[in-house]
Every structure is written in structure tokens, then in C-alpha cells.
């Protein structure tokens, strides 16, 4: 489904149908900054915080290539990557054919941000509404909420450092909805070692969170398609 979102974004023409000129121009500038990056290869670590997953911190390589190719690879093992993250090509968050609405301003982590709402023009788009919190000084997105028709709302937060000029974050935090995990019945005999069940501790916690810390980027490097 996420791919579909991307697809809508790619194949649609980039048009503004809004009269909110200020917001539109901010989005346009932010988009222009993002568009400098044709591809990148990044090293990072990924932390997954999902109540039913007990996974180690993973060393990952993140590959991106225009228009929407994104791959997170764990060179040393396995990483279960939330599909929502793969959908957020970030770089294509602002591409597509949608209406931009000015939703005012706010303060986010002591930074004054501009809030814009993006409504897809295509009625078949799986995304209902995106809300982006844009830093008007650095022209980068600090936070985005994407509401989909079927999979609820994802939230992405980004913080920037060395690569802010390319609009590439040092850290991404993605929060998303999850269902509980239940092993099919009759498959196993678990060893009851008396430990507290994780699911008991946070039964209500139906949100999962994945954080990616980017250590370094190699921007606009030629990346073969076979990587993806």
C-alpha cells in the first residue's frame, strides 16, 4: 500500500491547487532542497521498539535512489523493517499532486515550525491527509503525520545535523500502529520461565516505534539498481 502512495506521488504531476501562497512556496522550497539529492547511501543503526518484538539494535545500510527507491539492509543479519518507513521516501513526501493548506505555526523542540496540510487530489490515493511540520529557516521537515485510509496514522519525526543542507536527517523516529502478535495455536510449547510477559506490561501499547540513527551519508553516489 505504501508503494501505492509513492506511485501516486511519482506519476502525478507536480501541481499546486492552493491559494495558500506562503505555504505553497515553503513546500516548494523544501522540495527543491530535497531534490538536490538524487541518491544516497547511509550507514546507521536501527532500533525497533515494538512490544511483541525482541530484536537487537541493528547496524544497517540505507540506500535511496530517485524517484522512490529505498532500501534498508542489515549487512550482518536480519532486520524486520516496518513497511511504513519504506513508504516514506522522505524525498518524495512532498512530491505529488495535492492541495496545500496552511495550518498555522507551532513550536517543536524549541524550533518554530510552519504546519502545512497536504491533501491528495486523486480520490483513489490511499493517503487521506498528510501534515508536515516544516522548519522555515532550514527548509526541512521536522515532523510529518500521514493518515491513510486503511492503516491508520504514521508519525515521523526527524532531526538534522551535518547533512541538513541536503535535508538529510541524522535521526528518524517513526511511530506506527501495530496489531498484537499471536503465534498460531498449537505450534509450540513455550517454556514458561516465570518472566513477566511483555504483552502484559504494555497491553495497551499498540504503537510501534522505529528509530534510525544515521552516522554518515554518501550523497549522489551511483548506486546500482540491483541493490534494491
Amino acid at each position: 500500500m505504501i508503494k501505492q502512495i509513492s506511485a501516486v506521488f511519482i506519476f502525478s504531476l507536480f501541481t499546486f491547487m492552493s491559494f495558500a501562497q506562503e505555504a505553497s512556496s515553503l513546500v516548494q522550497k523544501a522540495r527543491a532542497k530535497i531534490e538536490q539529492v538524487n541518491s544516497y547511501e547511509a550507514d546507521g543503526t536501527m532500533k525497533t521498539n515494538v512490544n511483541f518484538l525482541k530484536v537487537p539494535e541493528a547496524k544497517v545500510k540505507i540506500y535511496f535512489k530517485k524517484p522512490d527507491k529505498l532500501k534498508i539492509k542489515n549487512e550482518n543479519g536480519i532486520s524486520l523493517v516496518p513497511k511504513s518507513i519504506l513508504g516514506i521516501g522522505l524525498n518524495n513526501l512532498l512530491t505529488g499532486n495535492f492541495t496545500v493548506l496552511d495550518a498555522g505555526s507551532d513550536i517543536l523542540n524549541n524550533i518554530k515550525v510552519k504546519i502545512v496540510k497536504l491533501i491528495p487530489v486523486d480520490e483513489n490515493s490511499p493517503v487521506v491527509l498528510s501534515t508536515a511540520y516544516i522548519d522555515p529557516v532550514h527548509l526541512v521537515i521536522l515532523k510529518a503525520k500521514i493518515t491513510t485510509k486503511e492503516n491508520g496514522t504514521y508519525e515521523i519525526e526527524m532531526s538534522y545535523g551535518k547533512y541538513v543542507d541536503y535535508a538529510l536527517p541524522d535521526k528518524i523516529t517513526c511511530t506506527f500502529n501495530i496489531k498484537d502478535y499471536k503465534l498460531p495455536k498449537g505450534v509450540t510449547l513455550d517454556y514458561d520461565d516465570g518472566s513477566k510477559k511483555i504483552s502484559d506490561q504494555k497491553l495497551q501499547d499498540t504503537k510501534g516505534r522505529v528509530e534510525i540513527f544515521y552516522a554518515s551519508y554518501a550523497v549522489n553516489k551511483n548506486i546500482p539498481d540491483t541493490v534494491f
Binding site: G77, K197, S199
Partner: peptide
Amino acid sequence: TNDTIIPRNDVIEQIQKAD
């Protein structure tokens, strides 16, 4: 070989290959 994924009753465990 690779990391080991172990499905328990309501949790999935992952163990690194070297571990």
C-alpha cells in the same frame, strides 16, 4: 546461517547470528 528468529506465544525473539 543468519540471525535466529524465534516465535514464542506472543513475542518474537531475534538473536544475532554471532550470539
